[in-house]
Design a protein around this nucleic acid. Structure first.
Length: 224
DNA sequence: CACCAGGCAAGTA
DNA sequence: TACTTGCATGGT
């Protein structure tokens, strides 16, 4: 069985058992972007509290957040954890947008994928996963998001090699899947759901996992 | 009580 | 280049 077949089977099984996930859980691309930074190494329920704080204060917009002092921003996002770090990171992003695009958020999101990605990665506080989350879920560009769950799930099911880094895993998906934003969107969302339900660090529940017995030598070989 | 969660940057050798 | 550490809240 080819890696493409393995991936198709993964996707079909996850979708059949869990249904569409309707990601990203946000109302606007701007909210996606803020959430992408707030959720760094943090449970999503904590991020929701932080986002809610900003929303109820009427601060969840480019202009409002840009005008907000960083110390005050830190106060609002406190439930998300690492609040001083994340407030600074959000400011870095907001400053970048203001400096290069003024208040034209649409122009920021309308950039081409390679240019946009490099630009995001050059901002302090935005790494590969945060950048790709913004590209895929805020800008609707076809890039596959790799996160801790993705890594752990693939390892547990022996689908990739031990020492695959972010880029290798991303290419493993993108080299063997159709280049479609909608597919990447749903695939990653399903992986996070599977991770939350069946592939926790301490409490793996492999009995009910839709990915049982998917390991193939071809997938493993193609990951190196 | 310990451990974990949808990372990233900075410091060390 | 390859490790290690700091950042911090809220749930299990």
């Amino acid at each position: 069985m080819s890696t493409a077949d393995t991936l198709q089977l993964m996707y079909a099984r996850m979708l059949a058992q869990l249904g569409p996930q309707h990601w990203w859980p946000a109302e606007t691309p701007f909210e996606v972007m803020v959430g992408a930074i707030l959720t760094q190494n943090t449970n999503w329920s904590n991020v929701e509290r932080a986002i809610d704080n900003l929303k109820r204060a009427g601060l969840l917009s480019l202009t409002a957040l840009s005008d907000l002092p960083v110390a005050l921003l830190a106060h609002y996002i406190r439930p998300a954890g690492y609040y001083n770090i994340k407030a600074g990171r959000l400011k870095n992003l907001l400053d970048h947008i203001s400096r290069h695009f003024g208040d034209d958020l649409q122009a920021f999101f309308d950039q081409s994928l390679p240019v946009f990605r490099d630009q995001l990665l050059a901002i302090k506080g935005i790494g590969p996963e945060t950048a790709d989350s913004i590209l895929l879920y805020a800008a609707n560009l076809p890039i596959f998001v790799v996160d801790a769950y993705t890594h752990r799930i693939l390892l547990r099911h022996q689908l990739i090699d031990e020492d695959c880094d972010y880029r290798m895993i991303q290419e493993w998906f993108m080299d063997h899947l159709p280049c479609e934003t909608g597919l990447y969107n749903e695939f990653h969302a399903l992986l996070v759901k599977v991770g939350n339900l069946y592939c926790k660090k301490k409490k793996p529940d492999c009995e009910a996992c839709p990915l049982r017995g998917l390991a193939t030598n071809q997938a493993l070989a193609d990951s190196r």
